[in-house]
Design a protein around this nucleic acid. Structure first.
Lengths: 220, 220
DNA sequence: GCATATTTGTCCGTATGTATA
DNA sequence: CTATACATACGGACAAATATG
């Protein structure tokens, strides 16, 4: 068995580094990322950094303006609505057509347990990570490389928005047990019910996020 | 009205150039693209070309192996099946929820007419282009930036496969009037019927492509 | 299996154009 | 309007990985 080596490629590694910083809110949405200063900070060349920028721009974590460089993407309402629309489409479809002995189900169980533990410790950041992995596992039920990739991208984008809105508990705490319920239905072979529960989950989450969004706009 | 200037950015322009060559079959699937020789051919620097490679790799038109560079992607059965699965999901969903006065409908009419003209001239390459634009217009009914982007990518990937299988007439000729029928149903407000017709369209197309694929594998 | 040639990965210097204080 | 900072793009360099004879 070939162990897939940790990507020693500098641009991939740096892309992941910046991705994490963006998702964690270390890099504030809207701030410009200067090629020269950031490349010095990360100890990489400008060429390499530019390659990284191309990757992250396509993932919509960075926003690119010609001749002005990149800045950290600023989530907006249209993006949030678009992301939730896609989540509904992809996740519900995956659940409806899933079969209960798919390997991803094990992954769902594992990440659900993680989420519960972190939730108990009120470590919402890590609840978020576990929750994301849980939903990615749902998407993986469909065995579609391309949908999985898309979903990973919009997950990262959504987590950026959550960081931005700055109330992780509100966005994650209520959903752990909803995930548990969906998983139960799936394992019982009640696919339609699982999909319906997911649709409700997503609608509630979207409403919550958009409300938080509105509050934030109001206060500024 | 601000006219969106043609992206004067070199890497974007070069990406489009290579994209076209790949889709048109000028660059044979599987062949390695050397950084040095291709950068000389295109009169751009290696650095710029590497940025282009990052873009096209994410679009799955190029395949990248660490320390070995990139080669033109070779379509495989898994990719074709994945692409059709996604088409069914996205296009049918778009049709079901579409409303008949969406601006994209005009675009559908226009591109359908184009397809008919080229079809009459037996110019299958351009039928393919018009057909692609027609289906992109369908996806745009959903007003989702992210789904549209995904769809553009898998369209390009699929056209690469068509070029590879080398029987454009088979893949395009029978579908022009099926598009027309779907458009008629949509304009009549019969969304479910339109979606159903689309599902059948996609299934037929998938079967045709996979059969051609099997024939090709057999002959080698 | 070894030595060599080629190619990628990465960095640096620099000229030019574009945006902003 | 000028000056400054920055992005864009080029070309050269060299080490490390890979392919070739």
């Amino acid at each position: 068995m070939k162990k897939d080596a940790p990507p020693q490629l500098l641009n991939e590694k740096m892309a992941e580094t910046i991705r994490q910083k963006i998702i964690a809110g270390e890099l504030t949405p809207g701030i410009r990322l200067s090629e020269t200063s950031l490349s010095e900070q990360l100890n990489i060349s400008r060429n390499t950094l530019r390659e990284v920028f191309r990757l992250l721009t396509q993932e919509r974590l960075l926003h690119y303006e010609p001749n002005r460089g990149v800045c950290v993407a600023v989530p907006d309402m249209a993006a949030i609505r678009d992301i939730y629309r896609i989540r509904r489409l992809i996740e519900c479809d995956a659940l409806i057509h899933a079969y209960p002995f798919h390997p991803s189900v094990t992954q769902m169980e594992k990440t659900l347990e993680e989420a519960r533990e972190y939730s108990h410790a009120r470590d919402w950041r890590n609840v978020g990570t576990a929750n994301m992995k849980f939903h990615i596992a749902i998407v993986e039920l469909a065995d579609s490389e391309r949908l999985t990739r898309l979903y990973c991208n919009i997950s990262a984008e959504l987590r950026l928005a959550f960081s931005y809105l700055n109330d992780l508990e509100l966005f994650y705490a209520p959903y752990v047990e909803k995930n548990a319920h969906i998983l139960t239905l799936l394992k019982e072979g009640q696919n339609e019910k699982a999909a319906k529960a997911m649709a409700e989950y997503i609608e509630l989450s979207e409403r919550t996020v958009l409300a938080a969004w509105a509050r934030q706009k109001q206060s500024t």
